[in-house]
Amino acid sequence: MRYSLLDLAPIPEGSTAREAIANSVALAQFAESQGYHRHWLAEHHNMPGIASSATSVLIGHIAEATSRIRVGSGGVMLPNHAPLVIAEQFGTLAEIHGDRIDLGLGRAPGTDMETARALRRHMSQQDTFPHDVLELMAYLGPVEEGQRLRAIPGAGTRVPLWILGSSLYGAQLAAHLGLPYAFASHFAPEMLEEAGDVYRRTFRPSDHLKAPHFMVAMNVFAAETEEEAAYHQSSAVLGFAKLRAGTPGPLPKPVKHLEDHLDPSWIAAAQSRFTVSAIGSEEMVKRQIADILEKYQPDEVMVNAQIWDHAARIKSVGIAARVLRQLGADGSF
């Protein structure tokens, strides 16, 4: 089992996008030193607290600053783009950085509908995601005889594709196409167990993947003490509440007493998003991660750490890596 890292390139309250990008570079370099297999960035738009909107640009920047860790998207929201453009972008990344680039694909817009309209210009009610994935696969595969439309660069690079999701839809599509599947249980844990079962049970081997590969995303807030870990998690809880209230902003500063800042109903709603999480001291985190591994039997885990303080985030990511290795995860390249 491998362990990897999800980075939303958070812009902390009181900071800037430039500093957030620098933090992401430092985080990726640290993750590489700790045996993380991948460093993924997610496409979001019109979000004051996330600096990864130009996802492929940031992937290239981080790949240039590292040497071994795989770098990719978790994910690119394919409905926002023409498949040919994504094939060219990731084909270019593959030509520059070799076999270190991953292309995780999501079906959601990664933003609000007004911003989605600005991105796409023409909104369609028709779901073209499966067709778009197949088109993208064809652009990145070997050139067929008589093929007139090609991705240059891109053709023949066979950049590894992943399907991302938080429902049965993505699990079924990934299984049908014989692709690896990553479940977004770090923010939408409800259907994790069922999706994993559907994906594994209905998987069809392909030229891309001979056996199912199921990744589970989890939040980790690890610190010296339980109280310190809960303090750092409060930023993510406050950020979730602001997003659901329609007022997204920079990643909030942590607070000691959430009840002084949020109604109990908001706290309960936010905490329901963190059921696939490990929060506390190193020993507490180890027990919680062990329970997650035993219950879902993932082939790979992806750690997410939305922590306001960069030094505390680095420390949490380091603890998570140490715990995962103790639990048998592979930290080699």
Rank of each mutant, 00 (worst) to 15 (best):
N46M: 03
I62F: 05
H44F: 14
N80Q: 14
A20H: 09
D7W: 04
S24F: 09
A42W: 01
G60D: 08
S56H: 10
S15A: 14
M77I: 03
E13C: 09
W40S: 03
S73K: 04
S4C: 09
P48Q: 05
A54S: 05
A26W: 15
L78M: 14
S15H: 11
R2S: 14
H81I: 09
R38D: 02
A42G: 14
W40V: 01
L6D: 05
E64F: 07
L8F: 08
H39Q: 02
A22T: 07
G35Y: 14
I21N: 11
S4L: 07
S56L: 08
W40L: 09
H39R: 06
M47I: 03
F30G: 00
S53P: 08
S15W: 14
A63E: 01
L78Y: 06
R38N: 06
H45T: 11
S33V: 02
P10I: 04
L78V: 10
R70F: 00
E43V: 06
G14E: 10
G60V: 05
A65I: 06
P10W: 04
G60L: 04
I50C: 11
R2W: 06
A26P: 01
G75Q: 03
E13L: 15
W40H: 13
S73F: 13
E64M: 12
G74Y: 13
S53V: 03
I21V: 14
N23V: 00
I21S: 07
I21M: 12
N46Q: 08
A65G: 07
P79W: 15
G72R: 05
E19S: 03
N23G: 07
I59W: 13
H45W: 13
L8W: 04
I59K: 05
A63C: 06
S67P: 14
N23D: 10
S52T: 01
L8E: 04
N46C: 07
A63I: 11
V25A: 04
Y3W: 01
P12N: 15
L8M: 09
S24C: 03
I21K: 02
M77K: 04
P12I: 01
L27H: 01
S67T: 15
I69D: 07
V76C: 11
H37T: 02
M47S: 10
A17M: 14
S73T: 14
A51Q: 06
S73H: 13
V57C: 06
R2I: 07
G75S: 06
Y36N: 02
R18H: 12
